[in-house]
Design a protein around this nucleic acid. Structure first.
Lengths: 101, 101
DNA sequence: TTGATAGGCAAGCTGCTACTTGCATATGGT
DNA sequence: ACCATATGCAAGTAGCAGCTTGCCTATCAA
């Protein structure tokens, strides 16, 4: 299977990955190089291209972004649906606990 | 100041801490020993008491639990309000980005 | 074809984090 | 006072996560 429950929380644990989600919220469907540029200029993130690429892999494994290849470009699109499971897990009170590691 | 934005996500990154939140959702206001017992019996968490205590410190620093001392007991209460900021950050589309590292 | 652009793969390093161990403090019961 | 219970503090350890470095592949334009 692709992406268990813990991947979502681990993906959100890194501040650079949260900034990536911010950037995709503001402008969806960016390429790796576009994201690198925006992080560097707007947020002073000095990480290398490979570092950002690895962050994108983690976000994709968590189901927070989906990718679409087109020629030599790879566009990254935000998918916020997994986020809803976070609040749903603890906001409804006193239901029988399900297996959720 | 006590607890910045990143603390919340780091607190949720650990599976044991998420189980603690599950237990407090099911039964609020437990002591450290009660939580230890429930994690051990219901979820096969073999961590020591000090490990769980450190987890509770992290959760409190993140604002997810508040503590109340009474004699030699310390009760832990859930506070899910910080969770709402997660979905609010990315679910509303295209607003001017604010400083949020 | 050549060169430039966009991205991928893999190994190695480093700092952080979860965990343990050992001792200390404080409250309540007898 | 004495002891058991409930929790706190601090140092040390091991594993992992984020980052870098170096090289490789694929697509497009001239």
């Amino acid at each position: 299977m692709v992406g268990d429950v813990g991947d979502l929380y681990q993906a959100l644990a890194d501040p650079t990955r949260r900034l990536i989600l911010d950037e995709l919220t503001e402008r969806d469907g960016q390429t790796l190089f576009e994201i690198c540029g925006r992080l560097a200029t707007k947020h002073q993130v000095g990480s290398s291209r490979q570092a950002i690429s690895q962050h994108l892999d983690v976000l994709e494994a968590a189901g927070l972004i989906v990718t679409r290849r087109q020629g030599r470009y790879k566009f990254h699109h935000l998918d916020t649906r997994p986020l809803r499971s976070i609040t749903e897990r603890w906001l409804r009170s006193a239901e029988p606990t399900q297996e959720n590691p």
